[in-house]
Simulated scan of single mutants.
Amino acid sequence: MLKLISLFFGISSLGLAQNTTLTITVTGIKNNSGKLTAEVYNSKGKFLKSALKTTSSTIKSNTAIVVFNDLPKSEYTVMVYHDENNNGKLDKNFIGMPKEAVACSNNAKGFMGPPKYEDAKFSLVADSKITIKMNDKL
């Protein structure tokens, strides 16, 4: 009986632990220099502060594709930036505004600052593909 209960809970937990893949296509990048960096956030408090995962990709024909594997089903936001000088960071001016092109999921745009978390969030419940159009600044 104990083995049967263990088997049941083992099978049940497999269904809960299914992770997803998020594929992001970024269009409208102004040139092919440097790389495209994408950051995934999994909470409002960490949005644009502390990414859950980060990855980069080469740019070809003003488009880049990045893939995040093993993301638990949840709510997320994505911020992408064109690391044009390939220095591994988003360059900002003296007041903290991005000097390199950036964009967010849902093509969310901010007014006098970054977009709101609520405008950029989306639910990831299965393998998904999203497209983000690059802007000059947040």
Rank of each mutant, 00 (worst) to 15 (best):
L2P: 05
K3I: 09
K3C: 07
I5K: 10
I5Q: 01
I5G: 01
S6Q: 12
S6Y: 11
L7W: 11
S13G: 04
L14H: 01
L16M: 10
L16E: 02
L16A: 10
A17Q: 06
T20V: 03
L22R: 01
L22A: 02
I24Q: 09
I24P: 03
I24N: 09
V26C: 03
T27K: 15
I29R: 06
I29C: 07
K30Y: 11
N31I: 05
S33G: 03
G34I: 00
G34A: 03
K35V: 07
K35S: 03
L36N: 02
T37L: 05
Y41M: 06
S43D: 05
S43C: 02
K44R: 15
K46R: 10
K46S: 14
F47G: 07
L48I: 07
K49C: 04
S50P: 00
A51C: 00
L52H: 11
T54M: 15
S57Y: 02
T58E: 09
I59Q: 07
K60D: 07
K60S: 10
K60Q: 09
S61N: 09
I65V: 12
V67Y: 14
V67Q: 15
F68R: 11
N69D: 15
P72D: 14
P72V: 11
P72N: 14
K73S: 12
S74H: 15
E75A: 04
E75Q: 09
E75R: 11
T77E: 06
V78P: 06
M79T: 12
Y81L: 04
H82A: 08
E84P: 00
N85L: 08
N86F: 15
N86Q: 10
N86T: 04
D91M: 03
D91H: 07
K92N: 04
K92G: 01
K92E: 05
K92P: 00
I95W: 03
G96H: 06
M97N: 08
P98G: 01
P98F: 09
P98N: 05
P98L: 06
P98C: 01
K99A: 04
A101C: 03
A103Y: 04
S105N: 06
N107A: 11
N107G: 03
N107S: 05
N107R: 12
G110L: 13
F111E: 00
M112N: 06
P115V: 02
K116W: 00
Y117P: 00
Y117D: 00
E118S: 13
K121D: 03
K121T: 09
F122D: 03
S123P: 07
L124C: 02
L124A: 01
V125D: 14
V125A: 13
V125R: 14
D127W: 07
D127A: 04
D127Y: 11
K129E: 10
I130L: 09
I130M: 14
T131Q: 14
T131P: 08
I132Y: 13
K137N: 11
K137L: 12
L138V: 09
